[in-house]
Design a protein around this nucleic acid. Sequence first.
DNA 1: CTCTCGCCTGTTTTT
DNA 2: CAGGCGAGAG
Length: 723
Amino acid sequence: MDKLDFAQNLKNQLNPAQYEAVTHPQGPLLIFAGAGSGKTRVLTNRIAHLVETLRVDPYNILAVTFTNKAAGEMNQRLEKLLGRQFQGLWVSTFHSLCARILRFDGEVLGYKKNFSIYDQDDSLSLIKRCYKELGMQDANPAPGICAVKISRAKDRLIYPDEYKSSASNLIERNVARVYERYQEELLASNALDFDDLIMKAVELFRKFSEILDKYRQRFLHILVDEYQDTNHAQYVLVNLLAAEHKNLCVVGDDDQSIYGWRGADISNILNFEKDFPGAKVVRLEQNYRSTQTILTAASAVVVKNVGRSPKKLWTEGEVGEKLTILPTEDESREAIAVVEKLSGLRSTDFLTLSDFVILYRTNAQSRSLEEALRRTGIPYEIVGGVRFYERMEIKDVLAYLRVIVNPSDSVSLLRIINVPKRGIGPQTISKLQKWADSEKISFYEALILSEDNPELSQNVKKKLADFGKLAESFKKKAGELLPEKLASEVIEKTNYLHHLEEAFPREEAESRIDNVKELVSAVQEFSERSETPTLEAFLEEVSLLTDIDRWDPESDKVTLMTLHSAKGLEFPVVFITGLEEGLFPLSRCMESREELEEERRLFYVGLTRAKERVFLSYAFRRRRFDDVGSLRSQFLEEIPQELVEEQKPERLAEVYSQQELKKYAAAEQLLEIGIRVYHDSFGVGKIIEKKGAGENLTVTVLFEGYLKKKIMVKYANMEILGH
DNA sequence: CTCTCGCCTGTTTTT
DNA sequence: CAGGCGAGAG
């Protein structure tokens, strides 16, 4: 395509706001892109415009997206747009960008090129080790909480010493101790966790201006997608890179900010104009995705939030169908209701399974849905949950590969040193560790040199030597074999499949063995497609891959995923399930306004995924911790009533009374047959049955109208009206 | 050193 | 209701 054609096409295919955003020549640019407003189209066209019309070398462009999938999609769309690939263009996530930079230039910070990347699982096990080493086993906070606190600190670029000096209570002082030790251990293991990738990249740029300069000269144009979800560290990174040329284009939507809990800072986008005075601001407000009804409903919900920049989405699309609310009795009935609706729609509206998505707040909710789908024989795919690369057996094999690449990687080494069982237990490990510390050698070296260790018995030495030889033989072969051959070699020589057979019942063992085999083919597939078919490259890709990256939107299956995973996607028909107080919004997020608003944005994100139809379901009773009755979500009431159609539940529901009642002994006596009560969720009803007493008290209430149910009498929710 | 049992805890979302 | 962890026995 030549230059003129391209320019002409742009004008025809974009609306005025989009056109403005795409053709803004240089300098800071902020694009507020409402849901479904053609954001990806603008980004890709902008990159194409930079190259085709402004003659910017693709080599000088950096585009940062949120997931690898989004990056891949962008590359694909560019290729489609121009009929060729852009050589040298960098499209990647923050994490892979930083990993790449650190592999290349990180040595000045003390990391060797073969560093390992620790996921939160690895990170937590290292933190637990730090607790032990510091003799803090029972200290507050628990390791899991400490891990979160350390992670938040890193998001904000707070280093251990600063954390320590600002620690104001015992818990924080404990975290500071662990944090300090944790960083030492990471460095000794030649490993970085997810947060380090960003933090250390920033450190690199701050400490070594010549390195920063190199990247500044390279990235003359920077585009950042989902800017509302960047945290402080990412913000600083972007600002460092863009400070000189100021050709920074950020795209985002404050209404879709849903990652506050992991450090995302909404003010990054809201303050952009302050950070870059004179920034051009473009608002994309025309929605091309959803029906008017869906869009109106979604907008009505999100306007309840206080801290947002005002905007009004509009569409020229059809009015469309009302949203449907499906009240159900419990989670399995909910699943059945969803599946029934789905199959009905499939036959009457000629939809394919890939047109549907079922969304939920927590991964645990997928179980009942999965069951219903399986019973009905409808193919489905779950995105997320236990990720493929986080499965135990996969992590075991990967740990072997990581040790081969990076023998300092203590987390991986400790993971596999006795898997499969080879008689190297905690005693031996602790002796080795002590010896390694006193001799100032790494754990791996201590293992290899254990022959010379006076502390160890002959028997133990033999076991260690065997394992050491095995590891060394893998290392030697790493240079000669293709990655997939090495993986097979590891699996074979360690007798790993046999170990799985022994450790698990047959069925489970088989599925785990299948996973291991799938891993080998994943390695093979990688080395065939990758430009750098090395084991190192594979390991890096794997640690930064998300489940959504592996998902195939085209395949004829119903998709199940969390609302978080659904960001950036669209479907003709969307089911949002579990709309109950305490579940969505999640109870832990209902205490502060900010958190409740984030839950509401999540609901907004869910609604705006839909092109044509939305179904919202909830259950009166749900098995969680124990059986709990629930109230429908406040979010349901925030949708204008004229836009929804509510299905009537027909079945008898049972909800139980609980401890709360004990506190209301007087109320208990009042709850007798014939008494009329009012309940927040179900309206006015009459008690027709009473069983048990105290904790076990259960009343059956006949609610006026359509419902007859036993209620878990959360007394606060129920008002006694009298006879 | 390994295995098993039973107790406790925690149960959100993810790069 | 899981999964993790510690204690105690083999």
